[in-house]
Simulated assay, not measured.
Amino acid sequence: MPIFKRFIHNSGKLEINPIIRTETEFFSTTVLKENAKRRSSATINTNFYDISASGYISALKGHNPTPASETTFLGEIVSEGKIVGGKPEPLNFYIAHYKDRHKANIDLTTTFSTGQGNPPGDCSCGFGGLGPLIINGLPYGSINKYSSEADSLPESLRPIIGEPSTEAKKFLTQRSSAKFTSFSKNDSNYSARLGKTCLGIRSLDVCVYVQKHGDSGMSIEAVRDEMMALGCKHAVFFDGSDSSLLYTPESGFLVSQADAKDQTCIAGAAFYWHSEPSQREPENKAKIK
């Protein structure tokens, strides 16, 4: 199957809530229980995570869910201005949503922020420890790229990887990221068949891209480039490989996690609109190569 793309349109007021497993149950069970309480437009997995040695052995041995306490998600999760869990990941990236900024038909990009570090403590919902695709309009990749205007600067001021100089930053057309590079290498080793969970924000849409691990789909570079072509100002990737998950109430689990990940995963996100979203391809799809 190809990568699943869901475009959730700005037809009301958006809310994003963390889905956190606290019971000894499969993560898919938690997703179903949360959707039974409140029907979402879509639910995905989010944070990368570590698992204790005992939890890892338990997942390998059988088909029983591990206690939620055996898993630590990497990157803080913020809900309604409070940190609800997670290990700080200041060198990685975050996406944050501010629902109080939202009004009908507003530019959605103004209700989100992205950046390096932990999610801001005043956001209504935020996820840290993530990989960057597009941060405040700037694409990220394995190397730094500059416009021709930077050619006059010494090479020491415009490195291929790492932090550029203040003088060179204004000429950046792509920023390097170790997190992106690591994921890209793994993806390349799998011939772009590595599972992916990606989120992009443009003026009228929340763009959710999820690819099942092992299926043909898109490279992480192609996802970034398509989201740039769609006009996304913010885009990040979450935990991928066989952790990737996408659930919608009307279609069920379009992408399911591997058994061991369903036993150990504890964090996701649910998207809600106050009015039903439509599902249509973006108008500028023809411009995407």
Rank of each mutant, 00 (worst) to 15 (best):
I3E: 11
F4C: 05
K5W: 12
H9N: 15
H9G: 08
N10Q: 15
G12Q: 11
I19W: 00
F26R: 08
S28R: 07
N35L: 01
N35W: 02
N47S: 06
I51Q: 02
S54H: 06
S58E: 10
S58T: 10
G62R: 10
H63I: 14
P67E: 07
T71L: 03
E76Y: 04
I77A: 06
I77Q: 04
V78S: 03
I83Q: 05
G85N: 05
K87E: 14
L91M: 03
L91I: 04
L91S: 11
N92L: 14
Y94R: 05
I95H: 00
A96Q: 08
Y98K: 03
K99M: 01
H102T: 04
A104G: 05
N105Q: 09
L108Y: 09
F112P: 03
D122I: 08
C123H: 00
G131N: 09
N136R: 14
N136A: 14
Y140P: 00
Y146A: 02
S156A: 15
I160E: 14
E167N: 10
E167Q: 14
F171S: 07
F171L: 03
Q174F: 07
A178W: 02
K179D: 10
K179M: 11
S182A: 14
S182R: 11
F183M: 05
D187A: 14
D187E: 09
S191A: 09
A192N: 15
L194Q: 11
T197E: 04
R202V: 00
S203A: 15
C207F: 01
V210P: 01
Q211V: 10
I220T: 11
V223S: 04
A229I: 06
G231L: 11
A235G: 06
A235E: 07
V236I: 15
V236M: 09
F238R: 03
S243F: 00
L246A: 09
G252M: 13
G252F: 10
A260V: 12
I266R: 04
A270E: 02
E281V: 00
P282W: 10
E283G: 12
A286S: 13
K287W: 01
I288G: 08
